[in-house]
Design a protein around this nucleic acid. Sequence first.
DNA 1: ACATTTGTAATGTATTTTATTACAGTATGA
DNA 2: TCATACTGTAATAAAATACATTACAAATGT
Lengths: 135, 135
Amino acid sequence: MISGKFAITLHILTLLSKFPDEFLSSDFLAGSMNLHPVLIRKEIANLKKHHIVESKEGKNGGTKLLRPAENISLDDIFKLTFERVTLGYSKNDPNPDCPVGKNINKKLDELYIDINDKISKELRGISLTEFSNKF
Amino acid sequence: MISGKFAITLHILTLLSKFPDEFLSSDFLAGSMNLHPVLIRKEIANLKKHHIVESKEGKNGGTKLLRPAENISLDDIFKLTFERVTLGYSKNDPNPDCPVGKNINKKLDELYIDINDKISKELRGISLTEFSNKF
DNA sequence: ACATTTGTAATGTATTTTATTACAGTATGA
DNA sequence: TCATACTGTAATAAAATACATTACAAATGT
């Protein structure tokens, strides 16, 4: 769940990269993107799981980057926040007695894997630093 | 709306390409993908608007391709069914007093436009015939 | 005429996403 | 050492979106 996962996570990381030595609170981060702090903390939990950031509890606590923004690519963030980009699937199981219905999802998968490879290739070339410098 | 638009539309067109001379009913098409015929007709309305198919009302009515499957690319279908692929946006308007918040959506847009160009380039190389022949 | 089909609007249901509440646990510093 | 300011996480509520269904007018073939 969370459809804005990538955008939210990238926004969080962009802010963290602006203050690489400070622990920023979920409240502060939430203020910039106008979302509920709990949602921010959920995304931060995901970032921690992947050792991109560390958090400190308690007063003056917050979150900061664990490694230089230069060493984080947008593809890293993509992979962290997306199972896979798709152009969608028909919601119900298609009819297995129809040659097209029987195989459509497999063929869509193949197509979508190709698309994801292209996206990854594109994003691999952009570092968090490069993105962050646009602001 | 309709998140499975691309998949449903491609499924419809694949079936139509298998019987290029027949008018297939929305009921038949719905049977292959196990969706409600009204939803199929909605997607067909979109295809008609773009002169990809024609429909015939009344008994023995239905829908058929208006041009050879060879002349329809997956990118045509993509453009017909997607405004744009995105990796999401944070739902609420970000804080305009934050330098990052103020510009994040514009920068995400630029990124997503690049991604869409790559996807289009990939899909432009695949004709409906080529896709349909996988079945 | 009658059966079959499209076209479309309106409404209902389900699913997904986001927001909120609640509260336990942790560090800081007055 | 106690009040305060945080994180962490679960549970629940609300909102948004997607899909299903119903309903019925209009068209066409037999």
